[in-house]
Design a protein around this nucleic acid. Sequence first.
DNA 1: GTGTAGTATACATCTTTGTGATCG
DNA 2: CCGATCACTTTGATGTATACTACA
Length: 771
Amino acid sequence: MGSSRQRIGSDTCGEEWEDGKISGSFDNDDHQNVHETDLRIVIDESPSSGRRKRVRRVSAEDKELVELVHKVHLLCLLGRGRLVDSTCDDSLIQASLLSLLPRGILNTEDVPTLTVDKLVPVVTWFRNSFCIKCTNFREGNLKENILHSVASREGTAEEVTALSVSLFRALNLPTRFVSILDVTSLNPDTDDPWAYNQDLPKLDPKISSPTLSKAIVSNNGDPTLPPVLLSSTKSKETAPEQIKRGRNKKQDRQLMIDSCDTNEQVTCANNNQNKGKKKGDVEFEMQLEMALSATAAGSFDCNPSQNNADICSSSSATTSFKSAKKSLNQAVTGAVWSRKKGPPLFWAEVFCKGESSTGKWVHVDAANGMIAQELQVESASAASKRPLKYVVAFSGLGAKDVTRRYCMHWYKILSKRIDGTWWARVLAHLKQLRSAATEADSTLAQVESTEDMELEIRALTEPLPGNQQAYRRHHLYALEKFLSKYEALYPKGPVLGYCSGHPVYPRACVQRLQTRQRWLREGLQVKSNEAPAKVLKSSQKFGRRQRQEEGAEEGSMTLELYGKWQVEPLILPPAVDGMVPKNERGQVEVWSEKCLPPGTVHLRLPRLAAVARRLGVDFAPAMIGFEFRNGRSYPVFEGIVICSEFKDAIMEAYAEEERRREADEKRRREAQALSRWYQLLSSLITRERLSRTYLEPSKAKEPEQEKKPENTPGKFPQPVSHKSDEQDHRHQKDHEQHEHVFPIEDQSFDSESFIRTKRCPCGFSIEMEEL
DNA sequence: GTGTAGTATACATCTTTGTGATCG
DNA sequence: CCGATCACTTTGATGTATACTACA
């Protein structure tokens, strides 16, 4: 900053001052001119100062808004998922895909005993036949876009995944379209990557397997440039550029094309190879077969002739399955997530009947050549700074939350998800649709419930986190040190493990503690002979109050807290002989219906006390809570509590009383209206008389009547005016010309209503009620 | 880069049982 | 005379979640 800048204030005063530019110098020379010159302070808004950023917390309103946006976005994404799902059932798309599929790649007799390894050829064929052009959403009709993708062998990630789902379904494999609902964040402060990351290209699986590289290279005209190199060098050039451009969402369309172009070069390099390879399908498949036999067969049959010592040594079924998965993906598909490529958003789940006794839904990302790599999804999402929040599987026009299959750290995403009950309510409807779709097939229904159970078990058996902070709000586990003041462990055990030396307890053992008073509000009372679960030193304020009540017992001001296990339903003394049991203040505290003494009722109506008193019925004012005003809290009363047997009598008397009161009120209002009319007209007439007496005749005709008349009392009948607007208008005009006269002979009187009607020869009439 | 402890801050929660003057 | 209404020191202490920093 220039020399003119001056630090205003000092740090010692403890206040934060902005650095500002003061135009105009404060040098000694000019000092005397200060008064004459303009003083301008230019706030330097550059965030360069090393001062701590002011913490700005989001308001409740903001939170509500982002929650709303989150919900709406979720619903939109659910709708989109269902649309894609239903499009995957389209017979034209399925037929087109089947026509492309080489013969014998999956035998129909394999379907009932489908295992992961039997899927590999289809997946590999698919991956080599279709490529992801760009991850972006494409406008237009989804079905047409997908059909176009079939023809061009490329499309968006969503379309290509939909194609894979469609293909599996065409092969009679129960298949779901699975999508990460990449929804807007619930935290309004976070730099939501969603806002700028949409254009990131889909991951481009690197080809690392020597077998596959060899296979592809052998089919490629240019063996000097291996696909893996091509892929990675291209990505290096394009990724940062794409991210930079991707930040501006408004350039969406153009960018999409741009990124498609570059991506196309990257991913379609593969495709071009594949296209070239089409001629050499046989050779390719032979290579594939070799890869398969080297992995699948080795892992499942434990063929000792294989080189892979890992696979051979694994004897248990699970290890064997895991090794198979690993080797399958490394050797056959060679896919590895790349952080630069953004998170995976779409894939399929294929039901493999032969994978366990009951069958198993298996993650199949055919577009990226990945099978049973569900564990990679979470890490890929996390690496892309877009932690997964919702993973939803779509089928049969319904949907199911399968996040738990892909999420190993539920506690991390729990806070990023919307309130569970709302989500469950949304999904309940979609689940109904699904169950309607699977109704016909009892085995599928069985599979559903098995899966539900499996996911539920996963929810209840999460591994213990290694860091302490994770236990702060963990849904399953708790550390005693993170319990709040009003929480306690009961029962204190079992200890599930240790974290940095602290015993870990089940979250279910964490109990909320409350004072006797608070339990009372819930209609519960502390059992006799129960010692407080926790005794806290009470606050000064509370202590002060207690001191007043209990005398000078300083230092012993405590807050006694009890747990749920120490309370029982409230037993209040019942009403006897028509007498309501009251507290020491002669009231009944009605926090809820449970707080009513047996045999009494709470009548929430005003002015009941007087009725009860008049009838001689015993009652107590019902206190329903407190109100805070002017720095103090006051009890709020509503209605009374009486013995049930008097309810009818009281209500009857009350109704009678109310009728009387209403009649009185009506009478009072009418009398008031009459009185006001009387005053108004009296003052008009008085004014008229005064004008006539004291003013010039010409001035008297000025329309002073329009001014508000004074309140001059006098004795005059009360008119009940019912002139129409037209009459009124005419009257006003007439009035300018003459003064009305009401000859006796033109008057009439209705003895029933006491209304006298007076008429002026000009046509103006006035009705007056005579008192 | 990750985890922990400590601090600062903003927001949330709990607290909790009149009185005298005036009006209708 | 009696009941309703209004004004009156417009709390304030404490808990909790979160962001941030320093440090291991």
